Amino acid sequence: MPGSCAGALVFDAVASLDTSPLAGARYHGDQAAAPGMLDFAVNVRHGQPPAWLVQRLADRLPDLARYPSRTDVQRAQEAAAHRHGRGCDEVVPLAGAAEGFALLPNLRPARAAIIAPSFTEPAATLSAAGIPVHHVVLEPPFNLDGAHVPDDVDLVVVGNPTNPTSVLHPREQVLALRRPGRILVVDEAFADSIPGEPGSLAGDPLPDVLVLRSLTKTWSLAGLRVGYAIGAPDLLARLTAQRAHWPMGILQLTAIEACCTAHSVADAAADAARLAAMRAELVAGLASIGAVVIDGQAPFVLFRMPDAEVIRNRLHDKGIAIRRGDTFVGLDERYLRVAVRPEWPLLVAEIAGAMTHPKNRRC
């Protein structure tokens, strides 16, 4: 249709998706779910933001006529800094952790390494900036044992817990990736989804470690884009050197302040415990139907099984979206990722049904 933008957003259902490294790096779970589908593809806490948070944001709507003030920024910084026991100058509010990845080229690395499988945005943004990227591909069960990063790499990106594997790396193994002259970037987008936040480096004032945190997952704020970076002041200054003026809106800054209070942190911790229990049930359910589940702790589960592509498409036809794995470096078409949701029994039942579907039976 002339002038139509219908092709701008494509919902993935079939295997015709371009899975080349460049295209795969720009594919994300939200592309798997059309409106109205039961969404296991996106790792955002189901439902809406809590009523108190919605009200807090609504209270700021009359302020949208003015530019964000330095006070708005400072309140967000102070709240996040207090939450992690850091200084105010060690926090930079971000439009989601994804903005932090988009800013990484400002650090001007000569060569970067990505611990894979992992979230694909760091590789995409670094490559787009002309920075050579080396993928350190881990083998199942995707832990850091034996991981070798080339000596000439001066920037390393690792997820903890890692998306999509859900693996939580021990902090000593993450810290072992440090080298003189190297910056270690730790993606902790899902750290607050694990009880106690084990392994987090957000509270460690290390001069060469940059931690990126997200608030969009736990607080169902994917549409607002909120997060922050934690690091040494000079490292943050380099990261944001080319950043636009007024990079954050009033509602984003308000959300960061609100979600970092002691009450909010306690609420997130309680939800993390609930998700951990639900995750164990989901893992048991998937294992009961023959799935090989990767051992992890984040609020999503990576597993592999025969005919995963067929299963994914049959679920799509039933109105259930799950995340394909073959767009991640280090995974193939056998892998699927699903979010932890209370509707998990329906998901397991539908996967089992897809496996026994007459057109899916093997002779």
Rank of each mutant, 00 (worst) to 15 (best):
residue 97 A to P: 01
residue 67 Y to Q: 11
residue 156 V to M: 03
residue 50 P to W: 09
residue 44 V to W: 14
residue 164 P to V: 12
residue 63 D to W: 14
residue 70 R to D: 14
residue 148 H to S: 12
residue 122 P to K: 01
residue 175 L to V: 06
residue 129 A to M: 14
residue 53 L to A: 15
residue 39 D to P: 02
residue 57 L to H: 06
residue 64 L to P: 11
residue 164 P to Q: 04
residue 137 V to Q: 00
residue 161 P to Q: 06
residue 150 P to Y: 13
residue 115 I to T: 08
residue 62 P to V: 05
residue 144 L to F: 10
residue 101 F to E: 03
residue 126 L to T: 08
residue 57 L to P: 05
residue 113 A to E: 08
residue 76 A to P: 11
residue 66 R to C: 01
residue 61 L to G: 15
residue 146 G to Q: 01
residue 105 P to Q: 13
residue 109 P to S: 03
residue 69 S to D: 15
residue 47 G to C: 09
residue 47 G to F: 10
residue 80 A to V: 06
residue 86 R to F: 06
residue 141 P to R: 04
residue 97 A to R: 13
residue 147 A to D: 01
residue 112 A to V: 13
residue 151 D to W: 02
residue 149 V to T: 10
residue 169 H to Y: 00
residue 104 L to D: 04
residue 167 V to F: 08
residue 41 A to Q: 14
residue 130 G to R: 05
residue 104 L to K: 09
residue 165 T to N: 12
residue 81 A to K: 02
residue 145 D to T: 02
residue 53 L to I: 00
residue 117 P to K: 05
residue 111 R to V: 09
residue 110 A to I: 04
residue 130 G to F: 01
residue 47 G to P: 10
residue 137 V to W: 08
residue 131 I to L: 00
residue 66 R to H: 06
residue 142 F to R: 11
residue 174 V to E: 02
residue 174 V to R: 04
residue 161 P to E: 11
residue 92 V to R: 00
residue 42 V to F: 05
residue 83 R to S: 11
residue 90 E to G: 03
residue 156 V to N: 11
residue 158 V to K: 06
residue 122 P to H: 11
residue 128 A to G: 05
residue 172 E to M: 03
residue 77 Q to H: 10
residue 114 I to Y: 00
residue 112 A to L: 00
residue 55 Q to C: 01
residue 148 H to C: 08
residue 37 M to S: 12
residue 118 S to P: 14
residue 123 A to D: 04
residue 59 D to A: 09
residue 81 A to M: 04
residue 147 A to N: 08
residue 66 R to P: 00
residue 104 L to M: 02
residue 145 D to Q: 02
residue 108 R to M: 15
residue 157 V to P: 10
residue 72 D to H: 15
residue 110 A to T: 07
residue 70 R to W: 15
residue 173 Q to Y: 07
residue 84 H to R: 02
residue 95 A to G: 07
residue 135 H to N: 10
residue 167 V to D: 08
residue 120 T to E: 10
residue 167 V to I: 07
residue 61 L to P: 11
residue 66 R to M: 01
residue 46 H to W: 12
residue 127 S to W: 00
residue 131 I to P: 01
residue 150 P to A: 14
residue 115 I to E: 00
residue 91 V to G: 15
residue 146 G to V: 07
residue 154 D to K: 13
residue 172 E to L: 00
residue 109 P to E: 03
residue 142 F to V: 01
residue 168 L to K: 04
residue 166 S to P: 13
residue 91 V to L: 08
residue 154 D to T: 04
residue 78 E to G: 01
residue 88 C to K: 14
residue 109 P to Q: 06
residue 126 L to P: 13
residue 133 V to K: 03
residue 153 V to F: 09
residue 152 D to G: 00
residue 67 Y to H: 15
residue 129 A to T: 04
residue 173 Q to S: 07
residue 168 L to S: 11
residue 173 Q to T: 08
residue 93 P to M: 02
residue 93 P to R: 02
residue 102 A to I: 06
residue 120 T to A: 14
residue 156 V to Y: 09
residue 127 S to I: 02
residue 51 A to M: 12
residue 167 V to R: 03
residue 87 G to C: 04
residue 147 A to V: 09
residue 136 V to Q: 11
residue 120 T to S: 12
residue 142 F to H: 09
residue 103 L to S: 06
residue 75 R to Q: 14
